[in-house]
Design a protein around this nucleic acid. Sequence first.
DNA 1: CTGAAAGCGCTTACAG
DNA 2: CTGAAAGCGCTTACAG
Lengths: 323, 323
Amino acid sequence: MVPTIKDVAKRAGVGIGTVSRVINNQKAVGDKTKSKVLSAMKELNYLPNNMASQLRRNRTKLIALLVPVISHPFFAKFAYYVEDQADKFGYSVLLVSSQQRVEKEKEIISRIKQRKVDGAVFVTHFMHDESLFTDCPIVSMDRTFGENVPYVTSDNYQATQNALEYMIERGARKIGFLGSKPLVESEVMERERAYIDLMNQKGMPVCSVNQVILHGEEEIIVNDFMQKYSDVDGVFVSGYSLSQIFYKRAVAQGKKIPNDLQIVSYDGEFAQWGVNNLTCVEQPIEQMAREIVNQLIKKINGEPTQMRTVIKTRFVEGLTTKK
Amino acid sequence: MVPTIKDVAKRAGVGIGTVSRVINNQKAVGDKTKSKVLSAMKELNYLPNNMASQLRRNRTKLIALLVPVISHPFFAKFAYYVEDQADKFGYSVLLVSSQQRVEKEKEIISRIKQRKVDGAVFVTHFMHDESLFTDCPIVSMDRTFGENVPYVTSDNYQATQNALEYMIERGARKIGFLGSKPLVESEVMERERAYIDLMNQKGMPVCSVNQVILHGEEEIIVNDFMQKYSDVDGVFVSGYSLSQIFYKRAVAQGKKIPNDLQIVSYDGEFAQWGVNNLTCVEQPIEQMAREIVNQLIKKINGEPTQMRTVIKTRFVEGLTTKK
DNA sequence: CTGAAAGCGCTTACAG
DNA sequence: CTGAAAGCGCTTACAG
């Protein structure tokens, strides 16, 4: 049979409490005792039973990460860093893809309540009933929902305006905006607000399509935009999927990029798959992921957290804007 | 405080054993008792503590899934179905990306031994020391490594030959092969074997580049191939990443596809991101994933498993071969 | 059909 | 510094 802490204690000739102290390497163990225990552990090939310590400590050391779709390069990269950071605290990550279904969110809440996981990162969010998750350690990205859920976001407003100014400096006179609207309050909406504000300020026309869609339905927005505003000479596209589709479509229509049409995308540096070299506002995914995990661990441990953390984006000059 | 099974028992005026039977809805509970317990549970807002039942049952209801990189569309899709199928058995999935590091495999073995997870799916595999994972419930894809690890694969040999014949029927007379070689014994190698056999049989030249590389290093193979065999009129590319890169490169070199050059890829139907409409051999990812999970659950439960399961591929006629 | 009791393998005050 | 003991919240023979 698999050896337990009792077997180790017997073999080392000590109490099980002492073995436990060695496992969790607490100070208060004498050197000789310690080495006796250590070698007993080695001889028996002992490994602590995780389930037992979980029960005692009331911690699973597991967090859930809820993303809309894993196969989206942004979320894939994000998930990678969440895992890496969680690991530093001894936590593993349960990756759940919501496919935009609100039940998945409820399911995770219930997992927390059943103590299958200690907390969760919500990148998606459709639930409106805040009361369901009071007391649940949850941290979010971009979404602002309620007093109890800290979130990490990027400088959406400023970064968008900077990107627009960049195109204007390079001659753009009629700039469009494409975006997909989140279902709940989210700082992502700042991007369109920044766009509208700047257009008004500059006396330029507002040519915006910003709708609620599901992942995978980006075509709808692109179609709609193309129909209404085919004569723009600059476009700000909010989000990687949209910009991929928009770019391909524009090229297919014979637009010369960047000469006829300049494009800046929010997100876009995922090189390997898809169109490369978009000029884009790059969110520092790694930094955002690590910060989110840090906040979550604090929440789990009952330490004070920061409600809103803003991470600065980086502007990447690609081939879809003029020199 | 959070209510426990004791609180429910007290409120319902029954023993805790009875509550437990209701929770796990076993037959042997009287209707009246059952409804008393049920309403006590509802009143107290009771949720069973997962950690406690884990300890008693010696099951975490968790499996690990080890993939080389999550962000690869093939693995992303695969992971999705693994999760979906595992869920049917009440299992959650811990997604781990190995980044090709052998330590990650060892780490998972150790998680199994520490009872942090009940079993694992290995899509990657570099470890050679079989003795490390005897007794560990592990199931693999494509990789054949040892008596104790069942695996699921596709009909690599046959599917490759069919694809080659398809190009030959359409006029291809000099066909190349591009592949990345796995580090351990794997049925993926059947693809090149099928290619070489057929070329010999038809008296056609063998133009093959098949090397060991890491994910992300696909350029090396493409470069090498382009240099050696620039005059082929057909190409079989093993794997999605390679085919994406090869296709873009061929187009950049001014090749007319499919007129100058026909391409068939093993894997390729991941539409949304990247180049669409490759002619390809499509592995039924969903079916493979579900079958792998089924085998793993059997292994975990100590039931007999099938060592080798072959899933039939589907040939998809795209735009990179002639009509 | 149901209750009382043992035990899963740990951790952690408590006393020494 | 160290041991004995209680207890985490369940499940499961066992007896009735």
